[in-house]
Design a protein around this nucleic acid. Sequence first.
DNA 1: CATTGTTTGTTTAATGTTAAACAAATTGTA
DNA 2: TACAATTTGTTTAACATTAAACAAACAATG
Lengths: 152, 152
Amino acid sequence: MPTHFKGTKKEIDSLNAFIKMTRASESINNRISRSLAESCGNLTISQFGILEALLHLGPSNQKDLGAKILKTGGNITLVIDNLEKRNYVTRETDPNDRRASIVNLTKEGEEFISGYFPEHVEKIVDEFSVLTSEELKELGRLCKKVGMKENN
Amino acid sequence: MPTHFKGTKKEIDSLNAFIKMTRASESINNRISRSLAESCGNLTISQFGILEALLHLGPSNQKDLGAKILKTGGNITLVIDNLEKRNYVTRETDPNDRRASIVNLTKEGEEFISGYFPEHVEKIVDEFSVLTSEELKELGRLCKKVGMKENN
DNA sequence: CATTGTTTGTTTAATGTTAAACAAATTGTA
DNA sequence: TACAATTTGTTTAACATTAAACAAACAATG
């Protein structure tokens, strides 16, 4: 189902790449979302993203977490609020900059995310299992190249 | 900034591809969204997707439109409602299946989407301009392959 | 010091999204 | 025909997301 758009080769190829990338990404993320809701007490993909970031980056302020999961500041406030209610994270004010809150994983949050992460990885491996290992690397490389064009 | 996760090569490569694909897709779609809001009277990316589908597929029922833009039925109802308020589409009941509404582009909707589409395409071309034409095609091919794995 | 601008996080209002429950029309099967 | 199951669209409640306005802390410059 290529686009019916009549344009230059470059336009058609760009549009096709865009549509296919969007569809692939959204359908995978929809399935991951549903898994999280089912197996993890209605955990949101944003909440999961924050936990994941904290696990791998260590304590971080909300600004950095927002940049990491590509959400706006107001949204991060709510996501952290909800994670706090679950006792998965705590906030503490940065002594070096009292505007900033440093978000920390609690013991409970750390146990949850590190325990669930392998299962999450297996789901993703399964999603990409149609690609050869060369294709997988190439896909990563190409998406990185496109994603790097952040600054326009 | 590859993931700090320790796992097999396949796990790491899958996770990297997933993260990079998600980031690339979301950051591009965020920018497209913002453009639509600014230049098109707060048109939503879902609304735009529906108009685009109608332009290229012709009149379609809500079920098919939902499948096209990967949104749930209840959401399609609202999106079509909002497009109706803008006088961009109309609903008519399918004479062959009275459960179904066939959604049509109005003259106004058709003029809007076909007039704006070239500008939209240029934005996308620009987003992917960091790739060579071979890379562009390969990205499309790989995403298609991953996206086809719909049925699990 | 005072002022000005920036950064960080919060709040609010408007809207989008989903899942679940539902009604109506259709289809299949006995 | 009658009955059950499916399909299509709608409604509702709960929640996520954003942009905009805001307050507090910081930084820079006079």
